[in-house]
């Protein structure tokens, strides 16, 4: 019985791994497109270098919120790389609902949401190195070398878990299209939560204590702030605490998405065909 279970769960996992791999290869076919997309990170990083250099100088301090200027810029570069590497999953789901193609996707021998998440991870994995190289090169030239890279494998694990949290929230937003059809406004607002409470524009350490506490209790901080902070201040203790928090949000959001999905598919009406 046990071996049958192991066999079916392995087949289950290998199916989604194959989808992930296909998407990864699909994206890699267009390296010029990947490189062109990396221009965005150069723009943002350049603005951040100017903004925070002037701010640190104006404050006359070496450290703000326990972070030096160099650490802040490396933090912001990684935060941008995490966000710019992920696809707009909510939009893909909503598009499938709006144009009716979901009717063809739902009866395929895979779970629609796991399919979308596998595609999302496949795409993100290919985009991340390009963004890291472009952004990292600029920061290195302007600010000096990155913090200790020994813990980078742990950072990659934290980034991957953070992406899955983000995809689950994006799925919640995308599935809202079952009821509202138009989800652009929800997507914008979520993006702004990431920008602010996720620590994309400013490290949460620069917030007033009360706001930092609130932001750290929300899932947004586990997608960006957590991995980026681990990158500049690596420690096993922080990695463990971060992973526990990420797993908590993965499970909670996973349950939420499953329930929302069941309700949404019951609601679904397709016109024509």
């Amino acid at each position: 019985m046990k071996s049958i279970l192991r066999f079916t769960s392995l087949r289950f996992a290998s199916k989604y791994f194959a989808i992930l791999k296909t998407q990864l290869l699909n994206t890699l076919i267009y390296p010029a497109d990947l490189a062109a997309r990396s221009v965005s990170i150069l723009i943002f990083v350049w603005v951040f270098i100017n903004l925070w250099s002037v701010t640190y100088r104006a404050m006359g301090q070496d450290q703000i919120g326990g972070m030096s200027l160099r650490e802040t810029i490396w933090y912001l570069m990684l935060a941008e790389a995490i966000v710019l590497s992920k696809p707009r999953l909510a939009q893909n789901i909503s598009a499938a609902v709006k144009d009716g193609s979901i009717a063809y996707l739902l009866n395929k021998p895979y779970n629609f949401l796991l399919y979308q998440i596998s595609i999302g991870i496949g795409e993100s994995i290919t985009r991340l190195p390009f963004n890291l190289i472009a952004g990292g090169a600029l920061v290195w030239m302007a600010m000096g070398p990155p913090p200790d890279l020994g813990a980078f494998p742990l950072v990659l694990i934290a980034i991957a878990l953070g992406w899955i949290i983000d995809f689950l929230i994006a799925a919640l937003i995308g599935l809202t299209a079952f009821m509202t059809e138009e989800i652009a406004a929800f997507e914008w607002i979520y993006a702004k939560f990431l920008l602010l409470l996720g620590g994309l524009l400013i490290p949460l350490d620069f917030f007033p204590a009360w706001l930092k506490q609130i932001a750290q209790a929300l899932p947004f901080a586990y997608t960006i702030y957590g991995p980026a902070r681990l990158f500049v201040h690596p420690s096993v203790e922080y990695f463990i605490a971060l992973s526990v928090g990420q797993l908590f949000w993965l499970i909670s959001l996973g349950i939420g998405v499953a329930l929302w999905y069941r309700k949404g598919t019951a609601w679904l009406t397709i016109n024509g065909g």
Binding site: E182, A184, A185, W188, I189, L195, L196, L201, F207, P208
Partner: peptide, 19 residues
């Protein structure tokens, strides 16, 4: 939803500058 959503979106972004 697009008009109100965008206003809310901008307000949330501007919170960065307030902080």
């Amino acid at each position: 939803s697009q008009v109100i959503g965008m206003m809310l979106n901008n307000a949330l972004y501007f919170l960065f500058w307030i902080i």
